[in-house]
Design a protein around this nucleic acid. Structure first.
Length: 270
DNA sequence: AAGGTTACCTGCCCGC
DNA sequence: TGCGGGCAGGTAACCT
């Protein structure tokens, strides 16, 4: 899926639905991670009040205290379009008064579109227990050092734990550890304070840079206007197994950690 | 109780 | 050309 930069790009790209009124909705016959329901009819004639992001969740607030919590899973995308063709894997759509469509497409259906009362958002089971946003000041070396202390898991998997910091997925943790010069197999508790500081700084840089470039387009991800992101052109290790490290020419290695692919340079990352 | 594995689902790519 | 296996940007329910 989209990691944080991709979700942020989509949130920025659908800003224009604000103040737009819902005329109708569509759901496909297939369930997402949570079943789709006819509850969405409550959105009809409601205007969009706000669009936000928390971690990888997109939150759209409507009039009368209704909110949609949307997650894109591994393969979800949202596009804004002036036509709705009900393409394969289009599983949810809203039709607005200006005749535009917000379309949620998700081949693997790990995503979801959950209608909730806005007042219940804070207690939403997907939103409680989330760690800090990586770009927020609360995500800093002191905080991370506290979290990593006594952590007996490799640093790569640990940093993908949303209870520690949100939105850092498989692409961006691989890239961040490379830039920080840290071996992904190193145990979290063994990182020195200087390394933790470097890692925090690097994650912020990588995520910020990726947002500026509109995220990474690998297979199905596109921005809400259908354009591609460009951070994939900046990958230093992700997907580059057996290719040369740009820094030292050593072959980039691919291993598997907790079921996810890890890419790193054994010379640059200690 | 922390840490590791599996399941959810479809599509694509690779090797045979 | 067809088929099977493995893999994919995530998350949480399960095991141990």
């Amino acid at each position: 899926m989209p990691e944080l930069p991709e979700v942020e790009t989509i949130v920025r790209g659908i800003e224009e639905i604000k103040n737009n009124k819902v005329l109708d909705y569509y759901t496909s016959s297939k369930n997402l991670r949570f079943p789709t329901t006819n509850e969405y009819k409550k959105l009809i004639n409601k205007k969009v009040k706000d669009i936000k992001r928390r971690a990888r969740y997109i939150i759209i607030d409507f009039e009368d205290g209704l909110s949609l919590v949307i997650h894109l899973g591994m393969s979800g995308t949202i596009v804004l379009s002036d036509k709705f063709q009900k393409l394969k894997h289009d599983h949810f759509a809203l039709n607005f008064a200006d005749n535009s469509y917000l379309i949620f497409n998700d081949p693997r259906r790990f995503g979801f579109v959950d209608l909730v009362l806005s007042q219940n958002l804070q207690g939403h089971k997907m939103l409680v227990n989330l760690g800090f946003e990586p770009l927020d000041d609360e995500f800093n070396a002191d905080y991370l050092a506290q979290k990593l202390k006594n952590k007996n898991t490799n640093i790569k998997t640990t940093m993908m734990d949303n209870k520690i910091v949100v939105g850092v997925g498989n692409i961006y943790i691989n890239e961040s550890l490379f830039k920080a010069g840290i071996n992904p197999q190193k145990l979290a508790k063994d990182l020195k304070k200087a390394e933790i500081k470097k890692l925090v700084t690097t994650i912020k840089e990588i995520i910020s840079n990726a947002i500026e470039l509109g995220g990474s387009s690998i297979n199905d991800y596109v921005k809400s206007n259908g354009e591609l992101g460009f951070f994939q052109n900046n990958f230093k290790v992700y997907g580059r197994q057996k290719e040369n490290c740009f820094v030292c020419k050593t072959d980039i290695v691919k291993i598997v950690q907790n079921g996810r692919s890890t890419f790193y340079c054994s010379k640059c990352q200690k």
